[in-house]
């Protein structure tokens, strides 16, 4: 059986703690803005927001280095921010603007920043688990000490690719940490209604790897848990499945009335808000004063205002004639079909 990781409660240097807090606040501010823009129909397309789960992405990403890689999910804005994503480039992408991370071609479900080690989000649930596993195979073969963090949700762990991939990683002892963000629902279906195990981490035992459960509302617990798994992966000791227990505040998407869960349950989780918990911890341990904590929030708010202005007002849409750009590397669409570029 998977073990619940003990709470850390020990804080690190002030600058590091401030950065973790800022990233969590940035994700929340971004998601609140996205939800507002969707409601006002300013934003088109589908967005799955990460509000409530901030401590998972931020804690996990704080456990890896610049050269490491991640794969993300349809609920991927948080991963992008935590991996160093810039709010204005992210919002521009969601708006379908040329200035976005993917030049407006991908939008919310396909945010990627490959040069920063974010191999991208995917619209297919569990779709990136094999991709992350392959990236880990590349890391192992290249011998440059890289590891991969592969994010997915509880729903993805019922998909065949989860089992194929963990088996592959277990057999080959790949340098990868699988991070299951268990937010209790796959769209509307509760884990307990569709999953044979209560703890997704228990599935690790079938694949010769450790399964660890962590409270996903505590950023430092997540960081410590993932750091241990990363260290093991880097040392060639193989993969780990980390399950972070968490909750998404909003529905699956903006059109979800949330009939499958109770107000009491939502209230319970909102009282365990990851940002509130971390703020309190930093104040209690006297790492930061209330004034300093407020200043971080003010900084985030200002960046969000600038990001909105950049995305909505300062950024152009892609030119229609650029439709065929980048379908293929080194080829373009010609009169008679594809033509090789010189």
């Amino acid at each position: 059986m998977a073990m619940l990781k003990a709470a850390v409660g020990k804080t690190g240097p002030k600058e590091e703690m401030a950065l973790l807090l800022k990233q969590m606040m940035s994700i929340r501010a971004f998601e609140d803005k996205v939800f507002e823009l969707l409601a006002r129909a300013v934003l088109k397309g589908a967005s799955h927001v990460y509000a409530g789960e901030e401590a998972v992405a931020v804690g996990a990403m704080a456990a890896i280095g610049k050269k490491d890689l991640i794969t993300s999910t349809h609920r991927g804005h948080g991963h992008c921010v935590a991996r160093g994503g810039v709010l204005k480039l992210m919002l521009a992408e969601l708006c379908g603007k040329e200035t976005g991370y993917c030049r407006g071609r991908g939008g919310s479900m396909h945010i990627a920043d490959v040069h920063a080690g974010n191999l991208g989000a995917t619209g297919i649930v569990a779709g990136n688990i094999p991709v992350g596993t392959g990236a880990a195979l590349a890391c192992k073969m290249k011998k440059e000490g890289q590891v991969v963090l592969c994010f997915f949700g509880d729903g993805a762990s019922n998909n065949g690719t989860f089992h194929e991939s963990l088996n592959m990683a277990g057999v080959w002892k790949l340098p990868i940490v699988y991070i299951c963000e268990n937010n209790l629902y796959g769209m509307s279906v509760a884990v307990k209604r569709c999953c044979t195990v209560e703890n997704i981490a228990d599935r690790a035992s079938a694949y010769d790897m450790d399964g660890v459960i962590v409270d996903g509302q505590h950023v430092l617990d997540v960081q410590a848990t993932v750091a241990e798994a990363v260290e093991k992966a880097r040392a060639g000791k193989g993969p780990t499945l980390v399950e972070a227990k968490t909750y998404r505040y909003r529905g699956h998407s903006s059109s979800d009335p949330r009939v499958y869960r109770t107000k009491e349950e939502e209230k319970y989780w909102q009282e365990r808000d990851p940002i509130k918990i971390f703020r309190q911890l930093l104040a209690e341990k006297k790492v930061m004063t209330e004034k300093e904590l407020d200043a971080v929030q003010a900084e985030v708010d200002a960046e969000m205002v600038a990001a909105e202005n950049f995305a909505l007002n300062e950024s152009p849409y892609p030119a229609p004639e650029a439709l065929f750009d980048d379908v293929y590397a080194g080829w373009r669409q010609g009169k008679y079909g594809l033509e090789k570029l010189a």
Binding site: L119, P130, V131, T133, G134, A138, M141, G160, S165, M168
Partner: peptide, 28 residues
């Protein structure tokens, strides 16, 4: 066996791992 790899009967993982390995700098 490092460069010629027998896999399990896992077609989705084979194809997907090739995608990920390719994006991470290999040529599977």
């Amino acid at each position: 066996e490092e460069r010629i790899r027998d896999t399990a009967i896992s077609e989705a993982a084979i194809a997907g791992a090739a995608v990920g390995a390719a994006m991470a700098g290999m040529r599977p």
